[in-house]
Amino acid sequence: MRVVWDGEEVEAREGQTVAGVLTGLGVRSWRTTRGSGRPRGLFCGIGTCFDCLVKVNGVPDVRACQRVVADGDDIRPQSGAELPS
């Protein structure tokens, strides 16, 4: 399975979450806060903290730790508060 991370095709496996794929790639942070633009990534890992938000297929505010990847997913970092495209 392949997904797109920030414009680049990467390998992914059945059952991986977005956070699993990104952590495997060594990516630590994929979102910035809307207030002070600070980097954030995975924190609670089980869907409660909403810190690991990422854009998937044009939709922002997706929890990377909960979202299981599907073939061809277009995954992009999220910058502060964004509108769906």
Binding site: G20, T23, R38, R40, L42, F43, C44, G45, C65
Partner: peptide, 29 residues
Amino acid sequence: ALPFPGWDLPGVFTAGAAQAMAKGQGVAV
């Protein structure tokens, strides 16, 4: 999680996150 200076830096996780990633996703944080 209790707050402390710097706890909002990427690379600070809850213990549960480390566990879920290791057991569920086969990757160390």
